[in-house]
Amino acid sequence: MRNELILLELADGYLRGELNAIERAELEERMRTNPEIRELVEDHRTLLGGMQRLALRPAVDKAYRSYRFGKWAPGIGGAVVAAMLISGTALLMTGGHETSDPTNTELIPAALDTIAPAATEAPSVAPAEEVRHTQQVKHDTVIMIMRNGVLTPIAAKDTVGKGTLRTVKTVPITASSPAELKQRMDSVRRAGATEQGIPAKAIPKDSLILLLDGAVSPRIE
């Protein structure tokens, strides 16, 4: 193996222009007289060519994503990462005494009355008569970008060196129960997509929640 290794090192140096004139002339002479050596050098040259192609491919793939994204959101330059912002505000009802933020209770008094306490996390001490409702506000934001035709939540690395991050759409969603929130966010997702000229596919009801959890990435063709 030793000899083969030395020969390959020689071929490598030859193709990369690292040999001196004497070494080069020597190898060329061996190539002239020995077809196996000639073939070895030729194959190595080809492998180095393949290596170069390997090096260029990521740039070509990256450009493809920008090209696809440019088509997806016309008017937004390919180099710019645009973001779709979906924000949902869940108003989860909790039956209980403690009111951490009393002003909130007054914001939607009408809605509170209609909520069944069953859907709530009841505190250990159940109130007998006078039930005061406390609302917890949950705010979810997910910024998504098109990656290879797939809408995926944005990661920190996506924002590096890609120009400005633009908010395309901000949708606050208010719902009186987690189930309703799910439903509304789903429909907003679809509406948001349609407004931007994407023929949105119907997606399963839970998909946005799963998406928010990072469990799935729905495909929009």
Partner: peptide
């Protein structure tokens, strides 16, 4: 012809 060989080499490397 040459690029075809480079392509095969690329696949081999991959």
């Amino acid at each position: 012809a040459e690029e075809g060989r480079f392509g095969s080499a690329e696949r081999a490397l991959r």
